[in-house]
Design a protein around this nucleic acid. Sequence first.
RNA 1: GCGCCUGUAGCUCAGCUGGAUAGAGCAACGGACUUCUAAUCCGUAGGCCAGAGGUUCGAGUCCUCUCAGGCGCGCCA
Length: 555
Amino acid sequence: MKNTLEKIVRRAAQAAYTAGDLNSGDFGDIVIEEPKVASHGDFATNFALTGASTQKMPPNKIAEAIIRHMDDPEQLIRDTQIAGPGFINFFISPAAWLPVLQAVHEKGALFGAVNIGRGRRVQVEFVSANPTGPLHVGHGRGAVVGDALAAILNFCGFITDREYYINDAGRQIRTLGSSVYLRCMELAGRATDFPEDAYQGEYIYDIARSLMDEKNAALFEMDADSAVDACARYAADKILENIRTDLKNLGIGFDTWFSEQSLYDSGKVAEAIRVLLEKNLAYEAEGATWFKSSLFGDEKDRVIVRGNGLTTYFASDIAYHMDKYDRGYERVIDVWGADHHGYVPRLTAAITAMGREPEQFRVVLAHLVNLVRQGVPVSMSTRAGQFVTLREVVDEVGVDAARFIFLTRHHESPLDFDLELAKQKTNENPVYYVQYVYARISSIMKKAAAEHSIGSHDVDDPMLAMLTEPEEIQLMKQMAKYPEAVAGAAKMMEPHRVAYYLMELAAAFHAYYNKHRVLTQDNELSRSRLCLVKGVRTVIGNGLTLLGVSTPETM
RNA sequence: GCGCCUGUAGCUCAGCUGGAUAGAGCAACGGACUUCUAAUCCGUAGGCCAGAGGUUCGAGUCCUCUCAGGCGCGCCA
Protein backbone atom coordinates (compact mmCIF):
# COMPACT_ATOMS: atom_id res chain seq x y z
CA MET A 1 0.00 0.00 0.00
CA LYS A 2 2.78 2.39 0.93
CA ASN A 3 4.72 1.54 -2.19
CA THR A 4 1.66 2.05 -4.34
CA LEU A 5 1.05 5.47 -2.85
CA GLU A 6 4.67 6.40 -3.35
CA LYS A 7 4.32 5.56 -7.03
CA ILE A 8 1.12 7.56 -7.29
CA VAL A 9 2.78 10.60 -5.77
CA ARG A 10 5.85 10.22 -7.94
CA ARG A 11 3.73 9.95 -11.09
CA ALA A 12 1.76 13.01 -10.01
CA ALA A 13 4.95 14.95 -9.42
CA GLN A 14 6.25 13.95 -12.83
CA ALA A 15 3.00 14.96 -14.50
CA ALA A 16 2.97 18.25 -12.64
CA TYR A 17 6.53 18.96 -13.72
CA THR A 18 5.71 18.12 -17.36
CA ALA A 19 2.73 20.44 -17.20
CA GLY A 20 4.90 23.19 -15.78
CA ASP A 21 3.25 23.24 -12.37
CA LEU A 22 6.48 22.24 -10.62
CA ASN A 23 9.84 23.90 -11.15
CA SER A 24 12.14 20.91 -10.73
CA GLY A 25 12.17 17.32 -11.93
CA ASP A 26 14.29 16.26 -8.96
CA PHE A 27 11.90 14.71 -6.46
CA GLY A 28 14.35 12.91 -4.20
CA ASP A 29 13.03 10.21 -1.94
CA ILE A 30 9.30 10.34 -1.54
CA VAL A 31 8.41 9.30 1.97
CA ILE A 32 4.98 7.92 2.82
CA GLU A 33 4.29 7.76 6.52
CA GLU A 34 1.48 6.78 8.83
CA PRO A 35 0.11 9.70 10.81
CA LYS A 36 -0.42 9.14 14.51
CA VAL A 37 -3.84 10.74 14.50
CA ALA A 38 -6.73 9.23 12.56
CA SER A 39 -7.96 12.64 11.43
CA HIS A 40 -4.75 12.96 9.43
CA GLY A 41 -5.73 10.06 7.25
CA ASP A 42 -4.37 6.56 6.74
CA PHE A 43 -1.18 7.79 5.14
CA ALA A 44 0.55 11.10 4.53
CA THR A 45 3.50 12.45 2.64
CA ASN A 46 5.75 15.35 3.55
CA PHE A 47 6.81 15.69 -0.09
CA ALA A 48 5.61 19.29 -0.33
CA LEU A 49 7.65 20.20 2.75
CA THR A 50 10.89 18.49 1.83
CA GLY A 51 10.57 19.62 -1.79
CA ALA A 52 10.01 23.27 -0.93
CA SER A 53 13.66 24.25 -1.26
CA THR A 54 14.43 22.39 -4.51
CA GLN A 55 11.14 23.44 -6.08
CA LYS A 56 11.53 27.01 -4.82
CA MET A 57 7.82 27.03 -4.14
CA PRO A 58 5.75 27.26 -0.95
CA PRO A 59 4.65 23.82 0.32
CA ASN A 60 0.97 24.56 -0.17
CA LYS A 61 1.42 25.27 -3.88
CA ILE A 62 3.40 22.05 -4.33
CA ALA A 63 0.74 20.04 -2.54
CA GLU A 64 -1.99 21.54 -4.70
CA ALA A 65 -0.06 20.72 -7.85
CA ILE A 66 0.43 17.12 -6.74
CA ILE A 67 -3.23 16.63 -5.96
CA ARG A 68 -4.29 18.20 -9.24
CA HIS A 69 -2.16 15.73 -11.23
CA MET A 70 -2.84 12.66 -9.15
CA ASP A 71 -4.07 9.59 -11.01
CA ASP A 72 -5.53 6.72 -9.01
CA PRO A 73 -6.68 4.02 -11.47
CA GLU A 74 -7.38 1.43 -8.77
CA GLN A 75 -9.48 3.89 -6.77
CA LEU A 76 -7.51 3.27 -3.63
CA ILE A 77 -7.91 6.77 -2.32
CA ARG A 78 -11.19 7.95 -0.91
CA ASP A 79 -10.07 11.48 -0.08
CA THR A 80 -6.99 13.67 -0.16
CA GLN A 81 -6.38 16.70 2.01
CA ILE A 82 -3.71 19.30 2.50
CA ALA A 83 -3.11 19.94 6.17
CA GLY A 84 -0.78 21.60 8.62
CA PRO A 85 2.36 23.15 7.15
CA GLY A 86 1.91 21.27 3.88
CA PHE A 87 1.29 17.57 4.52
CA ILE A 88 -0.79 15.69 1.96
CA ASN A 89 -3.09 13.30 3.78
CA PHE A 90 -4.56 10.26 2.09
CA PHE A 91 -7.73 8.52 3.18
CA ILE A 92 -7.89 4.99 1.82
CA SER A 93 -11.15 3.42 0.67
CA PRO A 94 -12.17 0.54 2.88
CA ALA A 95 -12.38 -1.84 -0.07
CA ALA A 96 -8.75 -1.14 -0.94
CA TRP A 97 -7.64 -3.19 2.05
CA LEU A 98 -9.32 -6.39 0.91
CA PRO A 99 -6.46 -7.54 -1.35
CA VAL A 100 -4.24 -7.60 1.75
CA LEU A 101 -6.38 -10.32 3.22
CA GLN A 102 -6.25 -12.27 -0.02
CA ALA A 103 -2.47 -11.95 -0.02
CA VAL A 104 -2.29 -13.32 3.51
CA HIS A 105 -4.23 -16.39 2.49
CA GLU A 106 -2.35 -16.93 -0.73
CA LYS A 107 1.08 -16.62 0.84
CA GLY A 108 0.26 -18.18 4.19
CA ALA A 109 3.39 -18.90 6.18
CA LEU A 110 5.39 -16.84 3.68
CA PHE A 111 3.33 -13.69 4.04
CA GLY A 112 5.62 -10.83 4.95
CA ALA A 113 8.73 -12.37 3.47
CA VAL A 114 10.27 -9.35 1.78
CA ASN A 115 13.21 -10.51 -0.28
CA ILE A 116 15.96 -8.28 1.03
CA GLY A 117 18.72 -10.86 1.02
CA ARG A 118 18.27 -12.03 -2.57
CA GLY A 119 20.06 -15.26 -1.80
CA ARG A 120 23.13 -13.70 -0.22
CA ARG A 121 24.82 -15.76 2.45
CA VAL A 122 24.94 -14.40 5.96
CA GLN A 123 26.29 -15.90 9.13
CA VAL A 124 25.05 -15.04 12.58
CA GLU A 125 27.46 -16.00 15.33
CA PHE A 126 26.00 -15.82 18.80
CA VAL A 127 26.31 -17.05 22.39
CA SER A 128 29.86 -18.38 21.91
CA ALA A 129 30.20 -18.55 25.69
CA ASN A 130 33.43 -20.05 26.96
CA PRO A 131 32.92 -23.68 27.95
CA THR A 132 34.09 -22.98 31.47
CA GLY A 133 30.75 -22.77 33.24
CA PRO A 134 27.00 -22.87 32.84
CA LEU A 135 25.07 -20.25 30.85
CA HIS A 136 23.41 -17.44 32.75
CA VAL A 137 20.52 -15.14 31.79
CA GLY A 138 22.80 -12.70 29.98
CA HIS A 139 23.82 -15.48 27.62
CA GLY A 140 20.14 -16.29 27.25
CA ARG A 141 19.38 -12.82 25.98
CA GLY A 142 22.15 -12.94 23.40
CA ALA A 143 21.04 -16.41 22.41
CA VAL A 144 17.42 -15.43 21.84
CA VAL A 145 18.27 -12.18 20.05
CA GLY A 146 20.74 -13.97 17.79
CA ASP A 147 18.38 -16.82 17.06
CA ALA A 148 15.45 -14.53 16.23
CA LEU A 149 17.68 -12.32 14.12
CA ALA A 150 18.86 -15.33 12.15
CA ALA A 151 15.28 -16.47 11.64
CA ILE A 152 14.21 -13.03 10.45
CA LEU A 153 17.12 -12.71 8.04
CA ASN A 154 16.45 -16.17 6.72
CA PHE A 155 12.80 -15.25 6.22
CA CYS A 156 13.90 -12.15 4.33
CA GLY A 157 15.80 -14.02 1.68
CA PHE A 158 19.24 -14.39 3.18
CA ILE A 159 20.75 -17.84 3.26
CA THR A 160 21.47 -17.85 6.96
CA ASP A 161 23.70 -19.99 9.14
CA ARG A 162 23.88 -19.98 12.92
CA GLU A 163 27.30 -20.51 14.42
CA TYR A 164 28.74 -20.98 17.89
CA TYR A 165 32.44 -20.25 18.41
CA ILE A 166 33.98 -22.46 21.04
CA ASN A 167 36.88 -20.89 22.89
CA ASP A 168 38.56 -24.17 23.56
CA ALA A 169 42.12 -22.91 23.31
CA GLY A 170 44.06 -20.70 25.64
CA ARG A 171 44.40 -20.04 29.26
CA GLN A 172 40.88 -20.19 30.58
CA ILE A 173 40.57 -23.79 29.49
CA ARG A 174 43.81 -24.52 31.29
CA THR A 175 42.41 -22.86 34.40
CA LEU A 176 39.29 -24.95 34.07
CA GLY A 177 41.45 -28.08 33.91
CA SER A 178 43.43 -27.22 37.00
CA SER A 179 40.25 -26.27 38.88
CA VAL A 180 38.80 -29.68 38.18
CA TYR A 181 42.08 -31.41 38.92
CA LEU A 182 42.36 -29.70 42.30
CA ARG A 183 38.80 -30.66 43.17
CA CYS A 184 39.59 -34.24 42.23
CA MET A 185 42.56 -34.17 44.56
CA GLU A 186 40.37 -32.78 47.26
CA LEU A 187 37.73 -35.47 46.73
CA ALA A 188 40.45 -38.10 46.87
CA GLY A 189 41.41 -36.81 50.26
CA ARG A 190 44.61 -35.12 49.18
CA ALA A 191 44.51 -31.70 50.76
CA THR A 192 45.27 -28.85 48.41
CA ASP A 193 44.97 -25.10 48.30
CA PHE A 194 42.29 -23.89 45.94
CA PRO A 195 43.51 -20.62 44.42
CA GLU A 196 41.25 -17.62 44.09
CA ASP A 197 41.62 -17.36 40.33
CA ALA A 198 40.32 -20.89 39.84
CA TYR A 199 36.66 -21.52 39.08
CA GLN A 200 34.84 -21.59 42.39
CA GLY A 201 31.47 -22.87 41.27
CA GLU A 202 29.77 -25.90 42.70
CA TYR A 203 29.56 -27.39 39.19
CA ILE A 204 33.31 -27.98 39.27
CA TYR A 205 32.72 -30.56 42.00
CA ASP A 206 30.06 -32.25 39.88
CA ILE A 207 32.45 -32.55 36.99
CA ALA A 208 35.25 -33.76 39.27
CA ARG A 209 32.98 -36.42 40.73
CA SER A 210 31.87 -37.81 37.41
CA LEU A 211 35.43 -37.73 36.13
CA MET A 212 36.62 -39.68 39.18
CA ASP A 213 33.87 -42.22 38.60
CA GLU A 214 35.13 -42.80 35.11
CA LYS A 215 38.89 -42.83 35.53
CA ASN A 216 39.77 -42.50 39.17
CA ALA A 217 43.03 -44.39 39.22
CA ALA A 218 44.26 -43.36 35.80
CA LEU A 219 44.07 -39.70 36.68
CA PHE A 220 46.52 -39.87 39.53
CA GLU A 221 48.96 -42.07 37.66
CA MET A 222 49.78 -39.40 35.09
CA ASP A 223 52.01 -36.46 35.81
CA ALA A 224 50.20 -33.33 36.97
CA ASP A 225 50.50 -31.60 33.64
CA SER A 226 48.83 -34.32 31.58
CA ALA A 227 46.27 -34.78 34.31
CA VAL A 228 45.28 -31.13 34.09
CA ASP A 229 45.07 -31.52 30.32
CA ALA A 230 42.83 -34.53 30.67
CA CYS A 231 40.67 -32.69 33.19
CA ALA A 232 40.41 -29.70 30.88
CA ARG A 233 39.29 -31.74 27.90
CA TYR A 234 36.86 -33.73 29.96
CA ALA A 235 35.39 -30.68 31.68
CA ALA A 236 35.08 -28.60 28.51
CA ASP A 237 33.27 -31.43 26.76
CA LYS A 238 30.96 -31.90 29.69
CA ILE A 239 30.17 -28.22 30.00
CA LEU A 240 29.68 -27.81 26.29
CA GLU A 241 27.26 -30.68 26.34
CA ASN A 242 25.28 -28.89 29.03
CA ILE A 243 25.37 -25.63 27.11
CA ARG A 244 24.05 -27.45 24.08
CA THR A 245 21.22 -28.90 26.13
CA ASP A 246 20.37 -25.54 27.69
CA LEU A 247 20.19 -23.91 24.28
CA LYS A 248 18.17 -26.75 22.86
CA ASN A 249 15.70 -26.27 25.69
CA LEU A 250 15.46 -22.63 24.66
CA GLY A 251 14.61 -23.75 21.16
CA ILE A 252 18.01 -22.91 19.73
CA GLY A 253 20.21 -25.00 17.51
CA PHE A 254 23.33 -24.20 15.52
CA ASP A 255 24.47 -25.17 12.04
CA THR A 256 28.09 -25.07 13.07
CA TRP A 257 30.02 -25.41 16.31
CA PHE A 258 33.36 -23.89 15.44
CA SER A 259 36.42 -24.76 17.49
CA GLU A 260 39.04 -22.11 18.17
CA GLN A 261 41.60 -24.89 18.62
CA SER A 262 40.94 -26.02 15.06
CA LEU A 263 42.26 -22.67 13.82
CA TYR A 264 45.57 -23.42 15.48
CA ASP A 265 45.61 -27.04 14.36
CA SER A 266 45.02 -26.10 10.74
CA GLY A 267 47.63 -23.35 10.87
CA LYS A 268 45.13 -20.60 10.11
CA VAL A 269 46.22 -18.41 12.99
CA ALA A 270 49.84 -18.58 11.87
CA GLU A 271 48.70 -17.94 8.32
CA ALA A 272 46.72 -14.85 9.34
CA ILE A 273 49.72 -13.41 11.15
CA ARG A 274 51.96 -14.16 8.17
CA VAL A 275 49.56 -12.39 5.80
CA LEU A 276 49.36 -9.32 8.01
CA LEU A 277 53.14 -9.10 8.23
CA GLU A 278 53.46 -9.65 4.49
CA LYS A 279 51.03 -6.85 3.71
CA ASN A 280 52.89 -4.61 6.11
CA LEU A 281 49.79 -4.38 8.29
CA ALA A 282 51.68 -5.73 11.27
CA TYR A 283 55.13 -5.10 12.69
CA GLU A 284 57.41 -6.25 15.46
CA ALA A 285 58.26 -4.00 18.37
CA GLU A 286 59.20 -4.41 22.00
CA GLY A 287 59.49 -8.13 21.46
CA ALA A 288 55.88 -8.51 20.36
CA THR A 289 54.00 -8.46 17.06
CA TRP A 290 51.46 -5.69 16.59
CA PHE A 291 48.60 -5.28 14.18
CA LYS A 292 48.26 -1.72 12.86
CA SER A 293 44.67 -1.34 13.94
CA SER A 294 45.16 2.40 14.43
CA LEU A 295 45.31 2.73 10.65
CA PHE A 296 41.71 1.51 10.50
CA GLY A 297 40.00 3.54 13.16
CA ASP A 298 41.08 1.84 16.36
CA GLU A 299 42.65 4.07 19.00
CA LYS A 300 45.92 2.16 19.15
CA ASP A 301 47.75 -0.80 17.65
CA ARG A 302 47.10 -4.19 19.23
CA VAL A 303 49.35 -7.08 20.10
CA ILE A 304 48.75 -10.31 18.20
CA VAL A 305 51.86 -12.23 19.30
CA ARG A 306 53.11 -11.69 22.81
CA GLY A 307 56.72 -11.41 23.91
CA ASN A 308 56.58 -14.99 25.17
CA GLY A 309 55.68 -16.22 21.69
CA LEU A 310 52.06 -17.00 22.49
CA THR A 311 49.34 -15.51 20.33
CA THR A 312 46.60 -13.37 21.81
CA TYR A 313 42.91 -14.05 21.63
CA PHE A 314 42.73 -11.24 19.09
CA ALA A 315 45.03 -13.14 16.72
CA SER A 316 42.78 -16.17 16.61
CA ASP A 317 39.79 -13.92 16.24
CA ILE A 318 41.32 -12.31 13.17
CA ALA A 319 41.97 -15.75 11.72
CA TYR A 320 38.46 -16.81 12.63
CA HIS A 321 36.84 -13.89 10.83
CA MET A 322 39.08 -14.31 7.79
CA ASP A 323 37.89 -17.87 7.68
CA LYS A 324 34.25 -16.80 7.86
CA TYR A 325 34.59 -14.76 4.69
CA ASP A 326 36.65 -17.49 3.08
CA ARG A 327 33.76 -19.83 3.68
CA GLY A 328 31.68 -17.62 1.41
CA TYR A 329 29.65 -15.46 3.76
CA GLU A 330 28.95 -12.05 2.31
CA ARG A 331 27.78 -10.70 5.60
CA VAL A 332 28.93 -11.62 9.07
CA ILE A 333 27.00 -10.70 12.18
CA ASP A 334 28.38 -11.21 15.69
CA VAL A 335 26.08 -11.00 18.69
CA TRP A 336 28.09 -10.10 21.78
CA GLY A 337 27.44 -9.14 25.34
CA ALA A 338 27.72 -5.40 25.78
CA ASP A 339 30.67 -5.87 28.13
CA HIS A 340 32.77 -6.70 25.06
CA HIS A 341 31.92 -3.52 23.19
CA GLY A 342 35.44 -2.16 23.62
CA TYR A 343 36.58 -4.95 21.35
CA VAL A 344 34.49 -3.83 18.37
CA PRO A 345 36.87 -1.20 16.91
CA ARG A 346 39.86 -3.53 16.72
CA LEU A 347 38.00 -6.38 15.10
CA THR A 348 36.31 -3.99 12.69
CA ALA A 349 39.77 -2.65 11.93
CA ALA A 350 41.05 -6.14 11.21
CA ILE A 351 38.13 -6.89 8.92
CA THR A 352 38.56 -3.61 7.09
CA ALA A 353 42.26 -4.39 6.71
CA MET A 354 41.29 -7.65 5.04
CA GLY A 355 39.53 -5.58 2.42
CA ARG A 356 35.94 -6.14 3.48
CA GLU A 357 33.35 -3.40 3.28
CA PRO A 358 31.86 -1.98 6.48
CA GLU A 359 28.38 -3.32 5.58
CA GLN A 360 29.77 -6.83 5.56
CA PHE A 361 30.37 -6.86 9.29
CA ARG A 362 28.10 -5.95 12.11
CA VAL A 363 28.30 -6.47 15.85
CA VAL A 364 24.99 -6.57 17.65
CA LEU A 365 25.49 -5.85 21.34
CA ALA A 366 23.06 -7.43 23.74
CA HIS A 367 23.07 -5.52 26.99
CA LEU A 368 23.48 -7.16 30.32
CA VAL A 369 20.55 -8.59 32.19
CA ASN A 370 19.77 -7.87 35.82
CA LEU A 371 17.91 -10.71 37.38
CA VAL A 372 15.37 -9.51 39.93
CA ARG A 373 12.63 -11.10 41.95
CA GLN A 374 9.71 -8.87 42.81
CA GLY A 375 11.86 -5.85 42.14
CA VAL A 376 14.71 -6.99 44.38
CA PRO A 377 18.01 -7.81 42.63
CA VAL A 378 19.05 -11.44 42.82
CA SER A 379 22.63 -11.43 43.98
CA MET A 380 24.99 -12.85 41.45
CA SER A 381 28.67 -13.36 41.83
CA THR A 382 30.43 -15.29 39.13
CA ARG A 383 33.67 -15.29 41.07
CA ALA A 384 32.13 -16.84 44.13
CA GLY A 385 30.32 -19.20 41.80
CA GLN A 386 26.93 -18.13 43.02
CA PHE A 387 24.56 -17.38 40.21
CA VAL A 388 21.21 -18.37 38.85
CA THR A 389 21.74 -20.33 35.67
CA LEU A 390 19.83 -19.90 32.45
CA ARG A 391 18.48 -23.38 32.90
CA GLU A 392 16.95 -22.50 36.27
CA VAL A 393 15.35 -19.39 34.81
CA VAL A 394 13.87 -21.23 31.83
CA ASP A 395 12.64 -24.04 34.07
CA GLU A 396 10.92 -21.51 36.27
CA VAL A 397 9.25 -19.17 33.78
CA GLY A 398 8.97 -21.27 30.64
CA VAL A 399 10.53 -20.95 27.20
CA ASP A 400 7.88 -18.78 25.59
CA ALA A 401 7.82 -16.20 28.37
CA ALA A 402 11.61 -16.10 28.59
CA ARG A 403 12.05 -15.62 24.86
CA PHE A 404 9.36 -13.00 24.56
CA ILE A 405 10.73 -10.97 27.46
CA PHE A 406 14.15 -10.88 25.81
CA LEU A 407 12.50 -9.81 22.56
CA THR A 408 10.32 -7.03 23.90
CA ARG A 409 13.26 -4.78 24.61
CA HIS A 410 15.64 -3.11 22.27
CA HIS A 411 18.77 -5.24 22.55
CA GLU A 412 20.86 -2.21 23.55
CA SER A 413 18.56 -1.33 26.36
CA PRO A 414 19.39 -2.67 29.81
CA LEU A 415 16.95 -5.29 31.00
CA ASP A 416 15.55 -6.08 34.40
CA PHE A 417 14.34 -9.66 34.21
CA ASP A 418 11.82 -10.12 37.00
CA LEU A 419 11.30 -13.79 37.74
CA GLU A 420 7.98 -13.25 39.48
CA LEU A 421 6.56 -11.07 36.74
CA ALA A 422 7.75 -13.49 34.09
CA LYS A 423 5.77 -16.28 35.71
CA GLN A 424 2.56 -14.30 35.97
CA LYS A 425 0.00 -14.88 33.30
CA THR A 426 -1.02 -11.26 33.02
CA ASN A 427 -0.42 -8.46 30.64
CA GLU A 428 2.85 -7.84 32.35
CA ASN A 429 3.70 -10.82 30.27
CA PRO A 430 2.58 -9.94 26.76
CA VAL A 431 3.50 -13.30 25.32
CA TYR A 432 0.20 -14.69 26.57
CA TYR A 433 -1.65 -11.70 25.17
CA VAL A 434 -0.37 -12.57 21.71
CA GLN A 435 -0.72 -16.33 22.06
CA TYR A 436 -4.25 -15.85 23.31
CA VAL A 437 -5.19 -14.45 19.90
CA TYR A 438 -3.99 -17.62 18.26
CA ALA A 439 -5.89 -19.78 20.72
CA ARG A 440 -9.10 -17.76 20.46
CA ILE A 441 -9.15 -17.90 16.68
CA SER A 442 -8.33 -21.61 16.70
CA SER A 443 -11.27 -22.09 18.99
CA ILE A 444 -13.58 -20.13 16.71
CA MET A 445 -12.48 -22.20 13.74
CA LYS A 446 -13.23 -25.41 15.60
CA LYS A 447 -16.64 -24.17 16.52
CA ALA A 448 -17.29 -23.01 12.95
CA ALA A 449 -16.58 -26.48 11.67
CA ALA A 450 -18.55 -28.27 14.38
CA GLU A 451 -21.63 -26.12 14.67
CA HIS A 452 -21.83 -24.06 11.51
CA SER A 453 -20.48 -26.60 9.06
CA ILE A 454 -17.92 -24.11 7.86
CA GLY A 455 -14.69 -25.95 7.29
CA SER A 456 -11.29 -24.43 6.88
CA HIS A 457 -11.53 -24.45 3.09
CA ASP A 458 -14.97 -22.88 2.98
CA VAL A 459 -13.45 -19.50 3.71
CA ASP A 460 -11.26 -19.39 0.67
CA ASP A 461 -13.58 -17.30 -1.43
CA PRO A 462 -16.10 -15.48 0.70
CA MET A 463 -17.87 -12.18 0.15
CA LEU A 464 -15.09 -10.03 1.47
CA ALA A 465 -17.04 -6.91 0.66
CA MET A 466 -19.13 -7.68 3.73
CA LEU A 467 -16.21 -6.71 5.91
CA THR A 468 -17.05 -3.08 6.52
CA GLU A 469 -16.85 -2.61 10.28
CA PRO A 470 -14.15 -0.12 11.35
CA GLU A 471 -12.51 -2.82 13.48
CA GLU A 472 -12.39 -5.11 10.46
CA ILE A 473 -10.77 -2.46 8.29
CA GLN A 474 -8.37 -1.83 11.16
CA LEU A 475 -7.35 -5.48 11.25
CA MET A 476 -6.63 -5.58 7.54
CA LYS A 477 -4.70 -2.35 7.76
CA GLN A 478 -2.69 -3.82 10.60
CA MET A 479 -1.92 -6.98 8.64
CA ALA A 480 -0.73 -4.84 5.75
CA LYS A 481 1.99 -3.48 8.02
CA TYR A 482 3.49 -6.87 8.77
CA PRO A 483 5.90 -7.09 5.82
CA GLU A 484 7.24 -3.69 6.69
CA ALA A 485 7.73 -4.63 10.35
CA VAL A 486 9.70 -7.72 9.37
CA ALA A 487 11.76 -5.85 6.81
CA GLY A 488 12.54 -3.15 9.38
CA ALA A 489 13.65 -5.78 11.86
CA ALA A 490 15.93 -7.33 9.25
CA LYS A 491 17.45 -4.09 8.01
CA MET A 492 17.99 -2.59 11.44
CA MET A 493 18.85 -5.93 13.09
CA GLU A 494 16.14 -5.26 15.64
CA PRO A 495 14.06 -8.36 16.28
CA HIS A 496 12.01 -6.55 18.93
CA ARG A 497 10.13 -4.79 16.15
CA VAL A 498 8.39 -8.02 15.29
CA ALA A 499 7.36 -8.54 18.91
CA TYR A 500 5.89 -5.06 19.16
CA TYR A 501 4.10 -5.49 15.89
CA LEU A 502 2.49 -8.67 17.19
CA MET A 503 1.27 -6.92 20.32
CA GLU A 504 -0.39 -4.27 18.18
CA LEU A 505 -2.07 -6.77 15.94
CA ALA A 506 -3.18 -8.71 19.01
CA ALA A 507 -4.69 -5.55 20.51
CA ALA A 508 -6.63 -4.88 17.30
CA PHE A 509 -7.93 -8.43 17.32
CA HIS A 510 -9.01 -8.47 20.98
CA ALA A 511 -10.88 -5.22 20.45
CA TYR A 512 -12.66 -6.67 17.46
CA TYR A 513 -13.43 -9.90 19.28
CA ASN A 514 -15.06 -8.08 22.15
CA LYS A 515 -17.23 -5.96 19.91
CA HIS A 516 -18.30 -8.34 17.15
CA ARG A 517 -19.18 -11.99 16.80
CA VAL A 518 -17.47 -13.92 14.08
CA LEU A 519 -20.07 -16.68 13.91
CA THR A 520 -23.53 -15.27 13.33
CA GLN A 521 -26.85 -16.43 11.93
CA ASP A 522 -25.80 -15.03 8.59
CA ASN A 523 -23.74 -17.78 7.02
CA GLU A 524 -22.20 -15.54 4.39
CA LEU A 525 -21.13 -12.97 6.97
CA SER A 526 -19.70 -15.70 9.18
CA ARG A 527 -17.62 -17.00 6.30
CA SER A 528 -16.31 -13.52 5.55
CA ARG A 529 -15.36 -12.87 9.15
CA LEU A 530 -13.84 -16.31 9.49
CA CYS A 531 -11.70 -15.51 6.50
CA LEU A 532 -10.58 -12.34 8.26
CA VAL A 533 -9.70 -13.92 11.58
CA LYS A 534 -8.06 -16.87 9.94
CA GLY A 535 -5.82 -14.36 8.21
CA VAL A 536 -5.03 -12.75 11.56
CA ARG A 537 -4.17 -16.16 12.94
CA THR A 538 -1.83 -16.77 10.03
CA VAL A 539 0.04 -13.52 10.61
CA ILE A 540 0.24 -14.04 14.39
CA GLY A 541 1.49 -17.58 13.88
CA ASN A 542 3.95 -16.40 11.28
CA GLY A 543 5.41 -13.77 13.62
CA LEU A 544 5.52 -15.97 16.71
CA THR A 545 7.34 -18.62 14.71
CA LEU A 546 9.97 -16.10 13.66
CA LEU A 547 10.52 -15.30 17.32
CA GLY A 548 10.65 -18.96 18.28
CA VAL A 549 7.52 -18.75 20.40
CA SER A 550 4.92 -21.51 20.27
CA THR A 551 1.44 -21.14 18.81
CA PRO A 552 -0.98 -22.90 21.16
CA GLU A 553 -4.46 -23.80 19.89
CA THR A 554 -5.82 -23.81 23.42
CA MET A 555 -4.74 -22.02 26.55
C1' G B 1 40.91 10.60 32.87
C1' C B 2 39.15 8.61 27.86
C1' G B 3 35.46 5.75 24.99
C1' C B 4 30.65 3.22 24.21
C1' C B 5 25.53 2.43 25.89
C1' U B 6 21.28 4.05 28.64
C1' G B 7 18.06 8.24 30.70
C1' U B 8 10.49 9.13 27.84
C1' A B 9 3.86 8.59 32.81
C1' G B 10 4.56 6.16 39.84
C1' C B 11 6.82 1.08 37.53
C1' U B 12 8.46 -1.80 32.92
C1' C B 13 9.26 -0.24 28.13
C1' A B 14 7.96 1.43 22.60
C1' G B 15 8.47 5.63 19.51
C1' C B 16 9.12 2.90 12.43
C1' U B 17 16.63 5.68 11.66
C1' G B 18 13.73 14.54 11.47
C1' G B 19 7.18 15.17 10.92
C1' A B 20 1.44 17.30 12.76
C1' U B 21 -1.75 17.10 19.41
C1' A B 22 3.83 11.97 23.05
C1' G B 23 2.38 5.82 22.91
C1' A B 24 1.34 0.82 25.26
C1' G B 25 1.13 -2.45 29.40
C1' C B 26 1.27 -2.67 34.77
C1' A B 27 -0.23 -0.04 39.13
C1' A B 28 -4.87 3.72 40.50
C1' C B 29 -10.08 4.84 39.61
C1' G B 30 -15.02 3.67 36.99
C1' G B 31 -17.52 0.25 33.78
C1' A B 32 -18.45 -4.70 30.41
C1' C B 33 -19.04 -12.06 31.18
C1' U B 34 -26.43 -16.25 30.02
C1' U B 35 -22.40 -15.19 24.01
C1' C B 36 -16.81 -17.85 19.46
C1' U B 37 -11.95 -18.79 26.14
C1' A B 38 -12.64 -12.22 30.94
C1' A B 39 -4.99 -14.73 30.10
C1' U B 40 -10.07 -10.07 27.10
C1' C B 41 -12.44 -5.27 26.23
C1' C B 42 -14.25 0.11 27.04
C1' G B 43 -13.43 4.66 29.75
C1' U B 44 -10.86 8.29 33.37
C1' A B 45 -6.39 10.08 35.27
C1' G B 46 -1.21 10.33 34.73
C1' G B 47 4.57 14.01 30.84
C1' C B 48 9.71 20.27 31.67
C1' C B 49 10.95 13.20 26.68
C1' A B 50 17.51 13.98 32.66
C1' G B 51 19.19 19.47 32.04
C1' A B 52 21.17 23.67 28.92
C1' G B 53 22.42 25.54 24.27
C1' G B 54 22.49 24.80 18.83
C1' U B 55 21.12 23.03 13.57
C1' U B 56 15.68 24.10 10.42
C1' C B 57 9.79 25.12 7.97
C1' G B 58 9.67 21.18 12.18
C1' A B 59 13.78 17.85 17.35
C1' G B 60 12.08 12.55 22.08
C1' U B 61 14.97 11.62 17.39
C1' C B 62 20.74 15.17 14.66
C1' C B 63 25.33 18.35 16.90
C1' U B 64 27.94 20.46 21.47
C1' C B 65 28.24 20.71 26.70
C1' U B 66 26.54 19.26 31.73
C1' C B 67 24.34 15.69 35.20
C1' A B 68 23.04 10.50 36.66
C1' G B 69 23.49 5.13 36.01
C1' G B 70 25.78 0.81 33.44
C1' C B 71 29.91 -1.20 30.75
C1' G B 72 34.75 -1.02 28.78
C1' C B 73 39.75 0.93 28.43
C1' G B 74 46.17 -5.47 29.45
C1' C B 75 51.86 -8.52 25.71
C1' C B 76 43.92 -11.39 29.88
C1' A B 77 40.16 -14.28 27.70
